[in-house]
Computed example of a mutant assay.
Amino acid sequence: MSMIFFACVVRVRDGLPLSASTDFHFNQDFLECRKKLKALSSVLARYPSRGTAKGRDLSIHFLSSGEIACMAICSSSYSTIMAFCFLEELQWEFAASYDTTSISLASRPYAFLEFDNAIQKVKHRFNYMSGSAMKVSWEKVEGELRLQPPVQLKLEDAELMNGMANGGHAGIEYKGVFVIFPSMERVTPLGILSLVLNIMCAALNLIRGVHLAEHSFQEDYEGIGNVVAFFLPFLACVFQCYLYLFYSSTRKVKTFVLLFSVCLCNIYLYGLRNLWQIAFHIGVASLSSYQILTRQLMEKQPDCGV
């Protein structure tokens, strides 16, 4: 039977579920599709505003606008146009009920669970209403989909489940490339400061290294060790920025190796740099290392049984 089985509203930036229909379906295919929807919701910010993940029996549709996204699980035979008409109306209802401030400040899953009543009403109407009964909305959405077709996603069962098992991070195959996106905690003001200082140190090392290299090449490669001692901290600063912004395996070991490299190279450069300059570069590297080690993966949000 062609129908909408499940719908939810999530926050785009972090996938936090704000509300959902409380229908209970115990079909295994549906439960698997729910897991895929949950994984997909955590990476919606990476995709265009409309998307569809087609399955053999069930499909996931999503529509995002501003801070919120509406998602639905429908039977694969259900009209795509009808599905997006449903999501548009659901999105309008939610936006009319809650302001952006309350959405931004929501900290717990399903903070607006009472919106389930509105979801049920809209879902019931769309499940038992033909496309001809909503001609205006149908034509509008049909035109929009023709101009901007929804992105087509392919959710691979085994790969997606593996991604979710590894700390609840989503894995999506998009245009033939499978990627796992671990979610990190928010960047802090101190973290931003460490990034700015790191970029400044990297630039100083690069400029001094290039300038010294020009003279070294003119003098039969004398002082090549100093050139290397400038370029290594430059690379270390770049990698420290990367480690702070993106999750990486064995990041603790990498962080200490980079810090050790910066310290060793700056000590080697004593003479070309005074003690204050050396202390500044080592201090920035230490601050960056601390920020890398204290920025953790975002905790998996509980499902709360909805």
Rank of each mutant, 00 (worst) to 15 (best):
M1H: 12
S2N: 12
V12H: 04
L16N: 03
H25M: 06
H25C: 09
N27D: 15
N27S: 12
N27Y: 07
D29K: 12
C33F: 00
R34Q: 15
K35Y: 04
K36Q: 14
K36M: 13
A39I: 01
A39S: 15
Y47T: 03
S49G: 11
G51K: 01
K54R: 14
L63P: 00
L63R: 10
I68L: 06
M71H: 00
A72G: 05
A72D: 03
I73S: 03
I73R: 02
S76Q: 09
S77Y: 02
T80A: 10
I81A: 09
Q91R: 14
E93D: 15
D99P: 00
T101Y: 10
S102K: 11
L105V: 03
A111F: 05
A111M: 05
I119H: 03
K121R: 12
F126T: 04
S130F: 06
G131C: 07
A133Q: 13
V136W: 07
L145Y: 04
L145S: 02
R146I: 04
L147Q: 14
L147H: 12
L153G: 05
E156K: 11
E159R: 11
L160I: 09
G163P: 00
M164I: 11
N166K: 13
A170R: 01
E173A: 10
Y174R: 06
Y174T: 06
S183E: 14
L190W: 07
L190V: 08
G191A: 08
L197V: 04
L204Q: 12
N205A: 01
I207R: 11
R208H: 13
G209A: 05
V210T: 14
V210Q: 05
A213C: 05
H215R: 10
E222Q: 14
I224V: 13
N226H: 12
N226M: 05
F230K: 06
L232W: 04
Q240D: 07
Y242V: 13
Y244K: 08
L245D: 05
L245Y: 10
S248W: 08
R251L: 00
K252A: 12
F256V: 06
S261I: 12
I267W: 11
I267N: 04
Y268M: 08
Y268I: 10
W276A: 14
I278H: 10
I278K: 08
I282M: 11
I282V: 15
G283S: 07
V284Y: 04
Y290E: 02
Y290F: 13
L293S: 07
L293R: 08
R295Y: 06
Q296W: 06
Q301K: 11
D303E: 15
G305E: 08
G305P: 02
